[in-house]
Design a protein around this nucleic acid. Sequence first.
DNA 1: TTTATTTGTTTGGTAAGCCAAACTTTATTG
DNA 2: CAATAAAGTTTGGCTTACCAAACAAATAAA
Lengths: 171, 171
Amino acid sequence: MTGVDLSENLEDYLETILELEKTQKVARVKDIAEMRGVLRGSVTGALKSLAEKGLINYEPYSFITLTRKGTAVAGEINRRHRVIKNFLTHVLQLDPQTAEDNACRMEHAMDRAAVDRMVAFIDYMDSCPRTDASWLEGFAKHWQGKQENRPDCKNCMARSAEKHVQDKKKL
Amino acid sequence: MTGVDLSENLEDYLETILELEKTQKVARVKDIAEMRGVLRGSVTGALKSLAEKGLINYEPYSFITLTRKGTAVAGEINRRHRVIKNFLTHVLQLDPQTAEDNACRMEHAMDRAAVDRMVAFIDYMDSCPRTDASWLEGFAKHWQGKQENRPDCKNCMARSAEKHVQDKKKL
DNA sequence: TTTATTTGTTTGGTAAGCCAAACTTTATTG
DNA sequence: CAATAAAGTTTGGCTTACCAAACAAATAAA
């Protein structure tokens, strides 16, 4: 889509720079190094690669900003990250740290088609009364091993259906 | 868990060897090279690493088999792959090729906690009549952009609830 | 059983990433 | 405005992976 193919590493650098731009206006080598857990020397090398690919504005000893293209690519990566983390925390109900760790790796593994479908899935869940909050609570009990013995599925569904009807009236 | 940490590459080699063992009884360098899309020389290097880590039985010019430990690790990787591919095809409804491609990368990105939770999620979906076949059909329509205008949610859910009750009687 | 062919290994070279440490530039502060 | 500190860069060396091509061993064919 964006027509750039980056190693996982450079994707991470780009994402880091985007974050720093958002919080500090500009990215500095020292901060990038700290956030990525590498030494400053390693950052310089990465910056040269990103600059060559036209993704950042980089002059030695100066601060770093994303180019228009770099912003687009970083935004795309960031979107993948957010979608995946959202799925992991709200659907799979993983704790925030586990979700974050997995999202950081999965964002490099999932392509656009997969992420887009994930978005559609979350969207569908949100729109369908079958998969409402009570269904998610049921899933929580399920993975916690606290599921009910003889669930009254008919009533359970009727309640959600009724609630849905009521909620629609309120709009 | 298995107490081994491997690069993505070595994980892939191990998985390939497991597959060859299953289909051909033993793995040969040539086949590994073909399946992984690398030259034979590259395989020899990888095999030495795996042998050093005690994951394969390897003597130069001889065939390759997994050790007990190697079988365990390869099985774990393979399980991740199957779970993820199953999710991508049956839940997200991605086409087989896209699902396979994404699973091949995601299997290195997701840890045990995430995969286990994914298993629980699929399991929950299977057990709950809300997320039955008709719900999945609804999702198909949703991502295909063919969703209904004014869905009759109450009836839709009542139908699934009733079907569930009937299905239970048959057992 | 010799000779070919296939299969497997070795060697030398490249590229991405990292670190450690020397060095240079910029910023701070006395 | 110096002197010091902090930030950034460079260099050399290491690791993992790959390829290409020369080489060795094993298998198949003549």
